[in-house]
Design a protein around this nucleic acid. Structure first.
Lengths: 132, 132
DNA sequence: CAGAATCCCCTTCGATACTG
DNA sequence: CAGTATCGAAGGGGATTCTG
């Protein structure tokens, strides 16, 4: 589904329909672990593939690969291959474009923190819609 | 899947795990039509159920109902029932909490617009931006 | 170490029909 | 007008296995 929106936004833009700015933005970080990945990279430090598998609880490598590849396609992060002795290593870091989206993530972080405080005070956060 | 994240965030918060602020925020507008719905409501004017079915291309009433109900559960929008002559009508509008998320949507809109301009100039989703 | 390829599951969406 | 109910289809995610 996320992929669906992401693909549709791409298609719309490529066919000249530019009326989907918010959706484009959302499709940058929509995906199971993208917010987490981008957030971890925000300080500028590159992160290795396997570091992510440790940082993110219960990611399969397939899904991680998928999320990273989509972020690369969207030009949010980039990859650096290099050799470390005999071992091939890969690290990921934000692109310039990726950095420009950080204020939005920070705003989301802040909004979420505030909302959580509100919910602590008046936890009118219904798990069920059976109430009215 | 969106629902999955949304539910999981709820559960985490309710069990005292408050370390998911960004995810909470994202779960507010993640969903096929939620961004659209919130955006249409941003000016403060209430919108009727059937108006949404006209505004949003190809929504089924089931999906629309679902999206609206989730937004209500999350306290982003609220519902007003009233009678108009003999006809029951329902309209939706932002809550106070819903209004507080608008700056993020506006930032998303702006970021998306800028990104689209970039893509018009160099229309490849991959590459460039002057590799460090 | 960093993936790619499979297979299966589960949710979510879409279409249609029915209700108060 | 504003939903509900039900069924089917599609696609993303998880676990596992294989590769350079």
């Amino acid at each position: 589904m996320q992929e669906d929106i992401r693909q549709k936004v791409k298609e719309r833009i490529q066919s000249g329909d530019f009326d989907c700015a918010k959706e484009l933005t959302m499709s940058m970080f929509m995906g199971k672990h993208k917010l987490f990945i981008l957030w971890e990279l925000r300080k500028g430090n590159p992160i290795h593939f396997n570091e992510f598998t440790r940082l993110i609880p219960n990611v399969s490598r397939k899904v991680l690969t998928n999320q990273l590849n989509e972020l690369i396609q969207d030009n949010m992060i980039k990859k650096k291959d290099y050799d470390e002795g005999n071992v091939k290593r890969v690290s990921y870091e934000l692109t310039q474009t990726g950095k420009t989206i950080m204020p939005i993530l920070e705003a989301m972080y802040q909004w979420g923190e505030n909302r959580i405080e509100e919910l602590k005070i008046s936890p009118n956060y219904q798990t069920n819609s059976s109430e009215n």
